[in-house]
Amino acid sequence: MEVSRHWRLNKQRYSLVGEVCPHCEHKLFPPRDICPDCGEDARDLFEFSGKGSVYSFTTVSQAPAGFEESVPYTVAIVQLDEGPLVTAQLTDLGDKPVEIGTPVEMVTRKLRSDGDQGMLIYGYKFRPAFAA
């Protein structure tokens, strides 16, 4: 059973909480404490809007253990509006095909469960943005 390695990432996983560099304003996700842009300390928390667009994507039909029951599923690299790229599943795709550039928005979904008795792991995925 694994608990703490997921629990400690709750804030990031549930609501895309990353960091912003106080020196150069660079937005960081995932958080990494040292700004990759200017090399300075960057620990100020920053909650991303969750809006972005598809940088690239593919479909997984041969899944690693723990994800077998979700196949086929779509994985993407999403470019967040604030800049960073993030790897995440796409969900609720509907009938319209995904394309590079499709606008997406973050939702918190079940990523997988740690076996039948272990914890349910929740985190960010992205869905096509509501055309509201």
Partner: peptide
């Protein structure tokens, strides 16, 4: 699937692996 998860250990477990990806997925993207 255990082979695919073994291969996925070479990715960033907390931010790539947890999303159900494998090297094949990365190459495809």
């Amino acid at each position: 699937p255990l082979v695919d998860s073994a291969l996925a250990t070479g990715t960033d477990a907390d931010y790539e692996g947890i999303q159900g990806i494998t090297p094949t997925t990365q190459a495809a993207m």
